[in-house]
Simulated assay, not measured.
Amino acid sequence: MRKALMIIIATLGLSGPVVADSGQRETVEALLIASGADSTLDAVYAQFDGMFANMAEQLKIEESERASFKKHMQEVNLMLRKEMNWDTLKAPMIDLYMAHYTENELQDMLAFYQSETGQSVVKKMPEVMAASMQITQQLMKDVYPKIMQMSKAYAEDLKKQRVAD
């Protein structure tokens, strides 16, 4: 009898965190859906489309090569959609949120994203993110040559230093 009681107590002790963990997972999943994380992938795919267009410019794809390049990019896009979809990302994202936020923080965020203001943020965020990416890309066009110039100067200095040593 005493052994059975110990097993029951041990089992109850183990099941408490599992139930809490399960409840927290449900909270995180609700938060991710309320915040539009599941639909954010569409914006990510659109960004990839923009990257593909830039890639065509960088590779100097000629008119005669456009059809094969387009076919290749469609294959890459299909692979991305297959490999990086919500079903694939959901569990790791839930784990990530659980590792960094308390239950109280999760509940507060969920309440925000379920609010009118939170839903407004969700609806506007893809446009805000796309615009911020354009700003960043534009700034990088100006900064990248400077980085390359600095790196080239450093490489020359390093080469001189190594010869001197």
Results as ranks from 00 to 15, higher is better:
86 W>A: 01
24 Q>H: 11
73 M>W: 05
117 T>A: 15
42 D>I: 03
115 S>V: 13
133 M>F: 14
8 I>P: 02
137 Q>R: 12
7 I>T: 07
85 N>D: 15
65 E>G: 12
37 A>I: 00
52 F>G: 15
8 I>S: 09
39 S>E: 14
134 Q>E: 12
148 M>D: 10
93 M>G: 07
37 A>N: 01
142 D>P: 02
123 K>A: 14
140 M>K: 09
118 G>C: 07
45 Y>L: 09
77 N>D: 14
117 T>C: 08
56 A>E: 08
14 L>E: 04
45 Y>H: 15
26 E>F: 06
101 Y>K: 13
10 A>S: 13
49 D>V: 02
5 L>D: 11
49 D>S: 14
157 D>I: 00
90 K>N: 04
153 A>E: 13
69 F>I: 08
93 M>D: 12
113 Y>P: 11
71 K>M: 05
92 P>F: 12
92 P>S: 09
154 Y>T: 04
67 A>R: 15
66 R>V: 12
45 Y>V: 06
46 A>V: 13
41 L>Y: 14
76 V>A: 10
145 P>T: 08
66 R>F: 09
103 E>P: 08
136 T>Y: 09
22 S>T: 10
163 V>P: 05
71 K>L: 13
87 D>E: 15
64 S>F: 05
152 K>L: 11
141 K>F: 05
140 M>P: 10
79 M>G: 05
160 K>Q: 12
126 P>V: 09
91 A>H: 05
125 M>C: 02
114 Q>E: 15
84 M>K: 03
122 V>L: 08
38 D>G: 01
38 D>C: 02
151 S>M: 15
113 Y>E: 04
36 G>F: 06
25 R>S: 10
129 M>E: 08
83 E>C: 01
55 M>Y: 03
40 T>C: 03
57 E>N: 14
116 E>G: 09
66 R>L: 10
79 M>S: 11
77 N>F: 10
95 D>I: 04
70 K>H: 14
11 T>Q: 01
123 K>C: 07
64 S>T: 02
9 I>N: 09
44 V>G: 11
159 K>S: 03
147 I>F: 14
126 P>G: 15
131 A>V: 02
96 L>P: 03
68 S>P: 01
85 N>E: 11
32 L>Q: 01
19 V>G: 00
26 E>K: 04
152 K>G: 02
55 M>K: 02
75 E>K: 09
153 A>N: 12
8 I>N: 05
101 Y>N: 10
85 N>Q: 13
132 S>T: 14
103 E>W: 05
163 V>D: 03
96 L>V: 00
161 Q>H: 14
93 M>V: 05
20 A>R: 01
139 L>C: 04
147 I>W: 13
30 A>C: 03
51 M>V: 13
3 K>F: 12
27 T>H: 05
105 E>R: 07
26 E>C: 00
128 V>R: 11
141 K>R: 13
110 L>E: 01
159 K>N: 11
128 V>S: 12
147 I>D: 11
2 R>H: 15
97 Y>T: 02
78 L>Y: 04
15 S>P: 00
148 M>V: 14
152 K>D: 11
21 D>Y: 08
31 L>V: 03
53 A>I: 10
3 K>L: 09
87 D>F: 12
107 Q>Y: 00
62 E>T: 10
